[in-house]
Design a protein around this nucleic acid. Structure first.
Lengths: 145, 145
DNA sequence: TATTTCTGTAATAAATACGATTACATTTAA
DNA sequence: TTAAATGTAATCGTATTTATTACAGAAATA
């Protein structure tokens, strides 16, 4: 299964931005269609990144710590620390093969470039932009697929 | 387990470019440090993309169909069809939640942008550039990690 | 032509990653 | 004090990925 933590986290953040008030993990989980514990784990990561604040106990829940316009998708991306965009071969190189010995460095360079490209893309998008797309489109127009 | 097909494929292609001659799946597998069958499956994908030609039978093996300078990493990327850079939530949306109903479209847009950024990056790198890095650096200077 | 050495590919096993769930201690409001 | 939340560890089930085995087919060569 593909790692969906980033998607889940963006969904959670969008929900919090849209609601503009404290939401508990049960409500967030219902929207994402997953388990509250999964949401709480992601909220923990978002909290560590300073993006949300959480109140424990009765009537607890989480809210954003700053305005949606000031939160970029890159911040969310870094908060959940997803796997690299391009995985490199982690196993031992074949010592007798020049190519094999150099592949790790070569692919690391390629992977870093790709990672940077994704990061630049995400840095250019903020939560408020996503919010506008939610408000623009009523729920009943949701497409299949 | 993380998908390493792209890394494996680039390694294979770099080997073929470096060798400049037909190599069999056993030799390629030794360099990548994996099983010959894994290599043959990747060669099948590369063959379908027209990047390599394979001879069956005794003294068989694979070689590049064109010069390293004319093969971009994007072609290799497309040949192995890796998973999307950013996975989107595939499950049902919560019909009563406006945000939930819009998230798939919103994230698809974000994911497509990220995919495009990676593709542009890979399009700008060709096999010959990787080859130069191999030739520049002798095997004994390979670093740990 | 028989043998050897490759490839192609299916089938299956093993390792790993991911998300779901259960459980329970802790916190806070009422 | 109780109810309703969070925090977090532990475990399970499933999906994904790679490794391995097995064997049929192809081509070179003795």
């Amino acid at each position: 299964m593909v790692n969906q933590q980033f998607t889940f986290a963006v969904h959670i953040m969008t929900m919090l931005a849209f609601a503009g008030e404290k939401l508990d993990s049960r409500k967030l989980a219902a929207s994402v269609n997953t388990n509250p514990v999964v949401v709480r784990r992601l909220l923990q990561a978002l909290r560590r990144a300073g993006l949300v604040a959480t109140a424990a106990g009765r009537h607890g829940g989480s809210r954003l710590t700053k305005g949606a316009a000031r939160i970029s998708l890159l911040e969310i991306y870094d908060a959940v620390e997803p796997r690299p965009v391009i995985a490199i071969n982690r196993r031992q190189a074949a010592r007798t093969c020049v190519v094999s010995c150099n592949m790790k460095d070569i692919m690391s360079c390629v992977a870093e470039g790709a990672e940077g490209a994704v990061r630049r893309h995400l840095r250019g998008i903020n939560l408020q932009q996503l919010l506008r797309k939610v408000k623009t489109k009523p729920a009943r127009t949701a497409r299949a697929r």
